Amino acid sequence: MSDRPAFQPSTLVIHSNRVYESQSNSILFPIHQTATYIHESVGVTKGYGYSRGANPTVNALEQSIAAIEGSESALCFRSGMAAITTLCLAMLKAGDHVLLSEVIYGGTTRLFEQVLGNFAIDYTFVDTANLKAVEQAIRPETRLIFAETPANPTLRLSDVHGLAELAHTRPNIKLAVDNTFLTPLLQNCLSLGADISMLSTTKYIDGHNATIGGSLATHDVALTERLRLVRKTLGTIQAPFDAWLTIQGIKTLPARLAMHCAHAGQVAQWLERHPRVLRVNYPGLESFPQRELAKKQQSGFGGMLSFELKATTSESLHFMKALKLCTCAESLGSVETLITNPATASHCDLTVELRARLGISDQLIRLSVGLEAPQDLIADFEQAFEAIFGGAE
Rank of each mutant, 00 (worst) to 15 (best):
P9R: 07
V13S: 11
I14V: 05
I14F: 10
S16D: 07
N17I: 01
Y20K: 12
N25F: 12
F29W: 13
Q33K: 03
H39V: 09
H39G: 12
S41Q: 06
S51P: 00
A54V: 15
N55T: 01
L61H: 04
I65F: 06
E69L: 07
E69Q: 11
G70D: 08
L75M: 14
F77W: 04
A82E: 00
A83P: 01
T86V: 13
C88T: 04
C88Q: 13
A94H: 08
D96Q: 08
L99K: 12
S101I: 03
S101A: 12
S101F: 09
G106S: 06
G106L: 01
G106V: 00
E113A: 09
L116P: 05
F119V: 02
A120D: 15
I121K: 10
T124M: 13
V126S: 07
A129G: 14
L131C: 12
I138C: 11
P140I: 05
R143N: 02
I145G: 07
E148H: 08
E148T: 03
E148M: 15
H161I: 11
A164L: 09
A164M: 00
A164F: 09
A167N: 00
P171T: 14
A176N: 00
N179G: 05
F181C: 15
L182D: 02
T183F: 05
L185C: 12
N188E: 12
D195L: 07
T202E: 03
N209M: 15
L216V: 10
A217E: 09
T218F: 06
H219S: 15
E225D: 05
V230I: 10
G235V: 07
I237N: 03
Q238D: 00
Q238K: 10
Q238N: 07
W244E: 03
G249R: 05
L253E: 04
P254R: 03
A262Q: 13
Q269G: 00
Q269N: 00
R279M: 02
N281R: 02
N281C: 01
N281K: 03
P289G: 05
G300R: 15
G300A: 14
F301P: 02
G302I: 02
A311E: 05
E315I: 06
L317P: 09
M320N: 11
L323A: 06
L323P: 10
L325K: 15
L325G: 06
L332T: 10
E336H: 01
T340Y: 01
H347Y: 08
V352M: 15
A356R: 04
G359V: 02
G359Q: 00
L364A: 08
R366T: 01
V369P: 13
A373R: 00
D376E: 08
D380I: 08
F385L: 09
I388Q: 06
G391I: 11
A392L: 10
